[in-house]
């Protein structure tokens, strides 16, 4: 066990955990930030996507010891009141079916739009291809990203 100081959603946190613990489980088990989801544990599905200094990262494969001063943003911290343009667009397009993958989808999309405010279809595909939606809401996800990009 070791003590780690983390900056998550703009706030400082201290956790005492095994250094190999992935950030995903630090968030979910130790900090009760459960909006970040477990899907595969090997960075193949994107359900656990967070931002590390603004970059989309798969938190299931990111040991806590590898995060030093970088800022972590989770879905809970993406916006103050759940009103990020993507969150609003997601509701406008009524994207979710089961909803489980959607926070990861939104986090991947937010990182995309930050770097590329007006992505083409191909760029959206490329950025979002790591996020599986088993319910098959891909068309609505893409439409919501485009709506958010326009706003």
């Amino acid at each position: 066990m070791a003590v780690f100081n983390l900056t998550i959603n703009g706030k400082k946190h201290q956790v005492d955990v095994d250094p190999t613990t992935p950030i995903l489980w630090v968030l979910r088990d130790h900090l009760n930030l459960v909006g970040t989801k477990y899907g595969c544990g090997m960075a193949m599905c994107g359900a656990c996507t967070i931002h590390l200094d603004g970059e989309a990262m798969r938190s299931c494969s990111l040991p806590v010891a590898q995060v030093s001063n970088q800022k972590i943003t989770t879905i809970e911290g993406l916006s103050e009141n759940g009103d990020h343009p993507l969150q609003k667009a997601w509701l406008e397009h009524d994207v979710p079916q089961c909803g489980y993958c959607q926070t990861g989808q939104i986090m991947s999309a937010a990182a995309l739009l930050k770097d590329n405010p007006k992505p083409s279809d191909e760029e959206i595909d490329a950025a979002m291809n790591g996020n599986i939606c088993r319910c098959g809401t891909y068309i609505r996800i893409k439409a919501a990203i485009k709506t958010a990009a326009r706003s």
Binding site: Q87, D94, G99, Y100, Q102, I106
Partner: peptide, 15 residues
């Protein structure tokens, strides 16, 4: 609209 939409997109505990 999906009544749980706002909770889903903000990552509230649902599952």
């Amino acid at each position: 609209k999906n009544v749980e939409g706002p909770k889903i997109v903000t990552g509230k505990p649902l599952f």
